[in-house]
Design a protein around this nucleic acid. Structure first.
Lengths: 198, 198
DNA sequence: CCTCCAATGTTGGCATTGCCTACATAAGAT
DNA sequence: ATCTTATGTAGGCAATGCCAACATTGGAGG
């Protein structure tokens, strides 16, 4: 007859929301957003097919939660990478490399971030601090300017330009449209290309 | 009784492949690739649900055909835009603006181009000339270099860097993550941002 | 301690979709 | 005229998102 714990767990899972988030994130990272199925999550967690709807009104809502996790992780990577450097410009380059590494290493998640599903997360209100991966870039650019780098120009605009550059490189790297030289990691190759202009 | 033409057309449509492509393209442009359904196409064309499979083995194969159309159109826009300028650098800037305009105007199609579905189109063999939107950029960069612009540097690498920059701007513009100043078109706004660095 | 209720989970069902197998028809070559 | 092949049809299967109705549980208030 099963022990008491699993009896209790059988009906009320107890932590379904978090379990859904964890599993969904791993599914997306492993196979992309189109491979995410609420029914599959439910059955994998030993729960009925409609149980997830008690925690997320629909599939897109779950996706949006994952997107938030993704932005938070990306922001963290950027903060850590720049924290390891003292010179402002070195910090900026480190952020660029960290960004590319994140995009290549977790490409399915990265693609989801720009899939358009979470647009309203950022356009509506001021972007929540914990998931704002852009602000650290603007700050770092401002630091660089204070140190004499491209002193003319609005830091916000400069940051947008740099973001566009690095994001574009990340996408091209992920997409694999451009063959990478033998024995070279894609994010290294693309970091090198960025130096061409930046 | 119906006229003879529709009688004939009732069974053998006569031009189903092209009709599928046309309608699929318009559906994708209007609502994105996730809105593309073979069954919907079939019924809209007054044909049975499995008829499309006589022309495309599966949904992805149809998507790939659309991707080819998209790249060809983008290439054409680039060629036309640079053809209107004489000075090499002016031509390069015109290509950038045309690229951004294409991405914004046909954003759903543009997104499909980078969705990863058509990867093998470009990585395998040498990219077919008619759909190669990258080669014109390399050529233009070479022209610019011949005219004294950034004479040091491999044109291929420079072109990749420029492509990354413009593609990144295009994606950010489409995504709408960055609010565009009132009364300004997104592609103008982003073209301005590109000038910040390029 | 008991009761009720809100949170959480289940069952059954509907519509849509991709795609498979078998079958039907038309159009053109032999 | 016949036969082959390209093309289209019918039926079906499994998966999915989501809705409505019902069940269970644990905790708040009497």
């Amino acid at each position: 007859m099963g022990d008491r714990d699993s009896d209790r767990a059988n009906y009320h899972h107890g932590n379904l929301r978090q379990a859904l988030l964890d599993l969904a994130l791993s599914r997306v990272e492993a196979a992309g957003l189109e491979a995410l199925s609420l029914r599959d999550l439910a059955s994998s967690l030993g729960v009925s097919k409609t149980a997830p709807y008690r925690h997320f009104p629909d599939r897109n809502s779950l996706l949006r939660a994952i997107i938030e996790l993704g932005w938070a992780d990306l922001r963290t990577d950027l903060l850590v990478s720049r924290g390891r450097e003292t010179a402002p410009e070195a910090g900026l380059r480190a952020m660029g490399r960290a960004y590319l590494a994140f995009a290549v290493r977790r490409s399915n998640l990265y693609r989801l971030l720009f899939s358009g599903q979470g647009k309203e997360l950022f356009t509506e209100a001021p972007c929540p601090k914990e998931i704002d991966a852009f602000a650290p870039l603007v700050e770092q650019i401002a630091l660089c300017q204070a140190a004499g780098w491209r002193t003319s120009g609005d830091p916000q605009m400069l940051a947008l330009s740099v973001w566009a550059q690095v994001h574009g490189a990340a996408e091209l790297a992920i997409e694999g449209l451009v063959p990478v030289p033998e024995g070279m990691e894609p994010h290294e190759f693309w970091a090198g290309i960025l130096e061409t202009i930046l």
